[in-house]
Computed example of a mutant assay.
Amino acid sequence: MGSRVPSIACIGVIGKHNNPLHISLFPPEERAPLEFSFLLSSCLDIFEARLPHKTADQDFGLLQAVDERLAMYGWLTNTGVKFVIVVDMEGRQASVFETRSSASVGLRDADLKPAFRALQTAYIGLLRNPFYDPDDHSPVTANAEQRVGSTQITSRRFIREVKRIGDTWTPGIVNI
């Protein structure tokens, strides 16, 4: 059996009112969407518990280790939107380059910072779209009669960027 490297199993974007805005699975055909939806919901209390102790740093680091294989990491934007990345520690088959370059035993919080920065950049790009109104995606401000669309993010550009981030991230990558 060849060596394996950690990979992203799920990226979740959770609104400031703890409503799911977007969930991407990697690879989607091998993952159970409901399972990851529950996992993302389970980490919301951890954000709330750590929030009073956080200062200017947006990186919440390791939120929880689900089991020996899955670990959840979190990031909070200044607008209250949460990014959660679930890492599969046995993710995928390592390429020759990754086998030579990955001498690490585990995963450090800093390994995910490039992915979180790229997610934040993608989200800022979404917010700059004049046709995207974040309040339309909030269950608090959009009642059933006024709601035209879904509370989920439907921007193809944003979804494509999240997929790119999830597909290209590897431990030790500096820039995505």
Rank of each mutant, 00 (worst) to 15 (best):
M1T: 08
R4H: 11
V5R: 05
V5D: 04
P6I: 11
A9N: 09
C10V: 09
C10G: 04
I11N: 02
G12N: 06
V13K: 02
V13G: 00
G15Y: 06
H17V: 08
I23V: 11
S24D: 07
F26S: 02
E29L: 12
P33N: 06
P33Q: 10
P33L: 12
P33E: 13
E35G: 00
S37F: 11
S37P: 00
S37T: 15
F38Y: 15
L39M: 13
L39E: 06
L40T: 11
C43K: 03
C43L: 10
L44E: 12
D45I: 09
A49S: 08
R50G: 02
L51Q: 14
P52T: 07
T55N: 13
Q58H: 14
F60D: 05
L62Q: 08
L62W: 03
L62E: 06
Q64T: 15
Q64C: 10
A65P: 00
R69C: 09
A71E: 15
M72T: 11
W75F: 15
L76W: 01
N78F: 09
N78M: 07
T79D: 10
T79G: 01
K82H: 11
F83A: 12
V84F: 05
I85N: 07
V86I: 15
V86Q: 03
V86A: 14
D88F: 09
D88T: 13
E90N: 14
R92V: 06
A94Y: 04
V96C: 02
E98I: 05
T99E: 14
S101Y: 05
S104H: 08
L107D: 02
R108G: 07
D109P: 00
D109Q: 10
D109M: 01
L112S: 04
L112G: 02
L112N: 01
P114I: 04
P114F: 04
A115S: 14
A115I: 05
F116R: 05
F116S: 02
R117P: 00
A118R: 12
A118P: 01
T121L: 07
Y123K: 01
G125W: 03
G125A: 15
L126S: 00
L127Y: 05
R128W: 03
N129W: 02
N129E: 14
P130Q: 07
F131G: 00
D133E: 13
D135Y: 14
D136W: 05
S138L: 04
S138H: 01
S138K: 05
S138M: 01
A144C: 07
E145H: 13
Q146H: 13
R147L: 08
Q152A: 15
I153E: 10
I153D: 10
I153W: 10
I153L: 06
T154C: 07
F158M: 03
R164C: 10
I165M: 09
G166C: 03
G166D: 05
G166M: 04
W169Y: 08
P171Y: 01
I173E: 11
